[in-house]
């Protein structure tokens, strides 16, 4: 399809130039390799104390250590399931309410001004309230994550519903489509690219707000482990956890984006 037309071109002559690679799939790895090289050089020079800026090999052994003592696998499991559950609740509520406020005037009038007022409140500011309401267990994490995801997904879905082209609706109605068919097979697909943009943002925000929630008031999870490392001044562990967070976030973003391209394939034309 349209995608392969652009990426499936075969180069006439294979020339491994930096500019050529930078536009291909290997681009992120060049950049990462470069940074890793710099980091290694800094570590080898010994210019900055290990306790402040640990070298790559120290971070690696901290990772292995956390993996072997079982904290890392457990923290990953705990954090990922919190993010997933919070995201699931927030995204489904967001899509549902976005469809409602997008199409039903009463719901829109009742809710939109209020929801727009909530949007600028940062997730981290909610953590104290969440802890009072739900304690330091899973409940407060689900709440903070789903709340953040909900607002973003709602906003994008609602926005997408406003931009359904009038001609689509006119075409559907003059073909005799029922209101239900129009909603399910015209309005929702027309808004789908916006809904997906919201979901993609939601995935990123799920991690962001989860870590915020785990940093203060948790007894497990990647955020908690970061906080714990601070108490023992284990910068090597902190670096390891930060890198893991980066890799997780980037991988999920990539997957969601790929899924989006599949589901709303007509947008890439």
């Amino acid at each position: 399809m349209a995608l392969t037309d652009q990426q499936g071109k075969t180069p006439v002559a294979w020339r491994p130039s930096l500019t050529g690679l930078a536009s291909g799939v290997g681009a992120p790895f060049i950049s990462l390799g470069f940074v890793l090289l710099l980091w290694t050089l800094v570590g080898l020079s010994g210019a900055i104390p290990e306790a402040i800026f640990p070298a790559p090999w120290s971070v690696w052994s901290a990772t292995v250590e956390m993996w072997q003592n079982g904290t890392l696998p457990n923290d990953l499991k705990v954090s990922l399931s919190r993010a997933a559950i919070g995201f699931g609740i927030g995204a489904s509520l967001g899509i549902f309410l976005g469809l409602m406020t997008g199409r039903v005037v009463v719901v829109r009038t009742l809710l939109n001004p209020f929801l727009n007022l909530l949007r600028p409140i940062p997730a981290i500011a909610l953590v104290p309230v969440a802890i009072v309401w739900f304690g330091i267990g899973e409940g407060s994490k689900y709440f903070v994550v789903s709340y953040t995801v909900f607002l973003t997904v709602w906003f994008n879905t609602h926005h997408g519903m406003q931009y359904v082209p009038e001609t689509y609706l006119r075409a559907a109605r003059s073909l005799g489509a029922s209101r239900f068919r129009e909603f399910a097979t015209v309005i929702i697909p027309a808004a789908a690219p916006h809904i997906f943009a919201g979901i993609r943002l939601g995935v990123a925000l799920a991690f962001l707000s989860l870590i915020a929630a785990e940093l203060s008031g948790a007894s497990s999870g990647l955020g908690f482990r970061l906080q714990e490392a601070r108490q023992y001044i284990r910068t090597d562990r902190m670096f390891s956890l930060l890198i893991i967070l980066g890799i997780l976030g980037a991988s999920f973003d990539y997957l969601v984006n790929r899924l989006g391209q599949k589901l709303v394939h007509w947008e890439q034309a």
Binding site: T167, Y168, R170, A171, T185, V186, P189, A192, W266, A269
Partner: peptide, 10 residues
């Protein structure tokens, strides 16, 4: 319609 108004998802 002049702009066809076909549904691009079908």
């Amino acid at each position: 319609f002049q702009q066809y108004a076909l549904f691009p998802w079908f």
